[in-house]
Design a binder for these strands. Structure first.
Lengths: 269, 269
DNA sequence: CTCGCCGTTCGAACTGTTGAAACGCTCTGT
DNA sequence: ACAGAGCGTTTCAACAGTTCGAACGGCGAG
């Protein structure tokens, strides 16, 4: 066992599996097509070792090889898995209709996300017919997208309800990069914001991720009371939404209502 | 190398990786939460071996363990991968807007799918605002869904354009189970249908998958002329759509147009 | 024609993997 | 209280799957 990461769990581990998965995740939206040599460099493995794993992945349908170029891309099996994962989150099944209603009523895009380490992952997303596209296109946001938690409304909600020790560990390894005009660029600002979120129960993103983009988020709890997800309403800069306060005033109520509705359906009292 | 499958490729293969992936795919929409013992039985592996792989998957974020029940479910990393895969299919990027237009114009649900072995996998799906839900709910169809090719319009289009040898191999291991009132339940019927599809260029599904459900599909070609995907329009039984012919008459034209449009954007002349 | 890079194959050295057994735990029925 | 069954987890020596350098044949560029 070469691996002796921090947090001394380190006992049971499969090197081969890790390497195979490293290869799978070396494919991304920005690098969708790779050859053996590309992959081998990306994961720093011997070329023939890489080849054996890639051949395995291809044989099992996780990778697809273009017969002409000999290069590989992700296969349909991976799509399968991804959607099995999405549907596993029982939360989606109960939340989807609530989110749709909220989108229809408010006329804006509503999303739901969970926390994965320092990132949020979108697990559901509903647009009202009225508000087409907008920032979703510029940011290329969709179900499955990842965004750093510290600069999103849902991320801040989720961080705010983490156990202090876990939160501290997370913040230790987050880089407060400036993403928008008003990004919280240091730990103190974020910690203060989280405290306020714990008080008020909602988080606001006021152009912290991108210019002209504001959102309000609220927590979703399961039957044990744990915050398992967050939902938000996002609004692009418009004639009426000129300050964060205006946005909150208009959207907080229906948002809270929907979050509460979903929580209730998950068994939270 | 213990494996010596048919089709003597069998050289480079990683047992460990295969086993790890078997574990991942033992999770499904119907079995979203599994314990070590469940998995071990499902993949017929020794319990401790299973444990080691599961621990690895969990450590890397592909599985999530509920701290209370100790049971596992698919993690966000898998969702990531799935969407990376979807976006890798560059075809989606170019097709999505065309499909949306077609959905809006026709007022029906349009889909796109690729072939994976004997199944079709939905890779894109657009509903017009008008036609809400319907069979999509009863069949629980969504992007990532799999359906046997022989009883779907898109599946038949894709089968029709396969190389004869590949097609034969596929048909050898398909079970022509009855799925709807008019399912093609033997090889001869299907082969005849495929011949007609090659002639006309479109495939029709006339209640072969489910009662009251009809659809028309057309092929999408890439720059090399190969059929890489199919698109369809599906229509629920309604007042005007009482026979397959009526449906075709009304939808064939716009469908062909959109399929051609997408093919052109992929570089097909 | 040569060079360089590619995907792929080979094989002996070796190291990560295997699986039975046992641990501590929580239930369930007695 | 108790025994038993089942669970997730840990251990370890024997083993078998994996590793990586080297080499092959094909391809495109110079």
């Amino acid at each position: 066992m070469p691996i002796d990461d921090e947090a001394g769990s380190g006992a049971a581990f499969s090197q081969s599996l890790e390497r195979g998965l490293m290869i799978l995740s070396s494919f991304s939206e920005t690098r969708p097509v790779l050859g053996i040599a590309d992959i081998s460099r990306a994961v720093t493995l011997n070329k023939s070792t890489t080849y054996r794993y890639v051949a395995t992945l291809a044989r099992l349908g996780y990778l697809h090889q273009d017969p002409e170029t000999k290069k590989y891309s992700l296969g349909p099996k991976v799509v399968d898995l991804g959607f099995a994962a999405l549907n596993s989150l029982e939360i989606n099944r109960v939340a989807a209709p609530c989110l749709q209603s909220l989108a229809d009523e408010s006329g804006y895009t509503v999303s739901m996300a969970v926390l994965d380490g320092p990132d949020v992952v979108y697990v559901e997303r509903r647009r009202s017919g009225r508000a087409a596209g907008g920032f979703a296109i510029s940011l290329n946001l969709h179900v499955g997208s990842r965004l750093p938690a510290y600069c999103t409304s849902m991320g801040k909600v989720l961080l705010a309800h983490l156990e202090p020790a876990v939160l501290r560990a997370l913040l230790d390894r987050t880089d407060f990069a400036r993403r928008g005009p008003k990004t919280l660029t240091n730990r103190e600002q974020l910690t203060a914001a989280l405290a306020k979120i714990r008080q008020t129960g909602v988080a606001v993103n006021d152009e912290e991720l991108a210019a002209g983009l504001r959102s309000v988020a609220a927590p979703v709890r399961d039957r044990t009371g744990r915050v398992v997800a967050a939902i938000n309403i996002a609004v692009h800069l418009t004639v009426w939404a000129t300050t964060a306060d205006t946005v909150v005033a208009r959207l907080e109520r229906p948002l809270r209502h929907t979050a509460a509705e979903i929580s209730t359906r998950l068994g939270y009292r």
